[in-house]
Design a binder for these strands. Structure first.
Length: 492
RNA sequence: GGCGCCAUCGUCUAGUGGCUAGGACACCAGGUUUUCAUCCUGGGAACAGGGGUUCAAUUCCCCUUGGCGCUACCA
């Protein structure tokens, strides 16, 4: 059975690049009808950020990525672990690592190292100065286990290093890159256990992936260079080596790794800016993957069905905001108005346009349609709709005058429209009827369309650009519409 | 410096030993339109360079160049 995992460090919010890694691991698991596991890698005690486990899980949940095993947030808001291979938080697995490192020590695949920081620093500097590869020189490599254990027992600080083979090569077939090969002699004697007793990533990841029966290790490209160390570890233990898939990095427009400095990299950020999950997931999945034909709108379910590593590309992908915007717009257009209100409601409240105590849902459902088709994000949508909620509009009088018209004419037309609108029955007050009747009226009176519709639209919206006058009037209702036109006319 | 990965329009990408190298976003022009958005029509835009292999290379191999990653008692 296929088992994949996502193994973030709780050092902050969920990075958009991490989301992509998680998404691909999730999609592959679903495609193979396997399991997707969440494990927390918190072995670096210095970089922990309080609350980030919660935040990562919530982001994953928001993205629709379901965790089969690992950690979840229960109804009371507490973190709970589920699954047979736990615990799923590395800091709770210290005993396991201690146990497994002994095996390596006994089989002479690992050794205690007592080298102090100063020596290591000096070593590195010398190597750099001589333009050599910087790596541990094996100073403690041949110390006997008996002796080193004695020193450790006496309280001498030590780390445990992997005793890398010095000859031969390690080859593996990467699911996205194909055959990859490294010479053993190039590979450092990686520290496996730090002097604080915690394992390093390299040791913990191998022990955990094995114990959690992970069949496919799917992770970012930055790990490809350390994969031979991991394979050496699997071999030292005599364990089966899993399949690897190293995903290309996500980069910004300057082709650098996406980072905090450039803003907008956490899922949270995108959510707050009014991006829809569906759009984000669709967009992200197309960064380095494609279905092989020309379709481009995919739901999560459809992605689960179609995803395959055969179609994952090797080159790094630029995170292109324009395309994301296009996707978001498409998803907003495709939504039914009810759904759109559900999604936009928090933003209406946040912008102070809607009182959570008294939500006029029907009004919102009609209102939202004015900007659906125009808005790129939900924030755009809500902001563009602000004029509907204003008790009165502040309008620059000149704006009421159409480019081919005059101030006096605009005033006159507005006044005539008021008189005409008053003749329309409440039952016919909707954008379709209104438009029909008004167009006939304009024609009968031999008016120029722009001379009438421009000032009316501005009178209703107060804006240079806005939805059409009939749409707005339909939402506003007869009374408010007439009040707005009257007050605009009085400005001229 | 060492090791590794990568290379098709500005961007995401399709593609094949022989094609007018396809699509999408963005951009430009025209049309529709009271504004914006939409919509329609059209347009410009790519196989990094050099060697091979081959009847034929964008495609296969090598080199160069460029980009990126790793090179921590961080992940």
């Amino acid at each position: 059975m296929t088992r994949t995992r996502f193994a973030p460090s709780p050092t902050g919010f969920l990075h958009i690049g991490s989301l992509r890694t998680a998404l691909f691991a999730y999609l592959f698991a679903r495609h193979e009808k396997g399991k997707f596991i969440l494990r927390i890698e918190d072995t670096d005690r210095n970089r922990l950020v309080e609350g980030s486990i919660d935040q990562i899980i919530r982001s994953l949940e928001w993205g629709g990525i379901q965790i089969d095993e690992g950690i979840e947030i229960n109804k009371d808001g507490n973190l709970v672990q589920k699954g047979e291979c736990g615990p799923y938080i590395q800091s709770e697995r210290l005993k396991i690592y201690q146990e497994y490192i002994q095996i390596l020590l006994e089989s002479d695949n690992a050794y205690y190292c007592f080298c102090i920081r100063e020596r290591l620093d000096h070593l590195r500097k010398t190597q750099e100065a001589n333009k050599q590869a910087t790596r541990y020189d094996g100073h403690c490599r041949s110390l006997s286990l008996k002796e080193t254990k004695k020193r450790v027992a006496h309280g001498e600080p030590a780390v445990i290093r992997l005793k890398m083979p010095t000859e031969g090569t390690i080859n593996f077939v990467d699911m996205v890159r194909g055959e990859v090969s490294f010479e053993n002699k190039q590979i450092d004697d990686q520290i496996l256990i730090k002097s604080d007793g915690f394992p390093t990533y390299h040791f913990a990841v191998v022990v955990d992936d094995h114990l959690m029966k992970i069949t496919h290790v799917i992770r970012g490209e930055e790990w490809i260079s350390s994969t031979p160390k991991h394979i050496a570890l699997y071999q030292a233990f005599g364990w089966n080596v899993p399949f690897f898939a190293h995903l290309s990095l996500l980069v910004n427009e300057q082709r650098q790794k996406l980072s905090k400095r450039h803003g907008d990299i956490s899922l949270e950020d995108f959510k707050e800016k009014g991006y829809l999950v569906e759009a984000l997931i669709n967009f992200i999945s197309f960064l380095g993957w494609n279905p092989g034909d020309e379709r481009e709108m995919f739901t999560l379910k459809e992605l689960e069905k179609e995803f395959t590593f055969k179609k994952v590309s090797k080159a790094p992908a630029v995170f292109n905001r324009e395309k994301l915007n296009w996707y978001n717009k498409q998803y907003i257009i495709a939504m039914n108005p009810e759904e759109l209100v559900d999604n936009a409601l928090p933003f209406f409240i946040q912008h102070g346009l809607v009182n959570p105590e008294s939500i006029e849902r029907d009004f919102l459902v009609r209102a939202v349609q004015l900007e659906q088709g125009r808005a790129v994000t939900l924030v755009d949508l809500v902001e563009a709709l602000g004029f509907l909620f204003a008790s009165s509009l502040i309008i620059e009088p000149e704006l009421l005058v159409w480019k081919k018209s005059t101030r006096d004419d605009a005033k006159e037309k507005l006044n005539q429209v008021v008189i005409f609108f008053q003749t329309i029955k409440e039952g016919e007050w909707n954008k379709v009827k209104l438009k029909e009747k008004t167009m006939v009226w304009i024609q009968e009176n031999d008016f120029c369309i722009g001379n009438v519709l421009w000032p009316v639209r501005v009178a209703l919206s107060g804006q240079k650009n806005s939805p059409g006058p009939f749409e707005i009037a339909g939402v506003l209702g007869k009374d408010k519409t007439i009040v707005r036109i009257r007050s605009a006319a009085s400005l001229l």
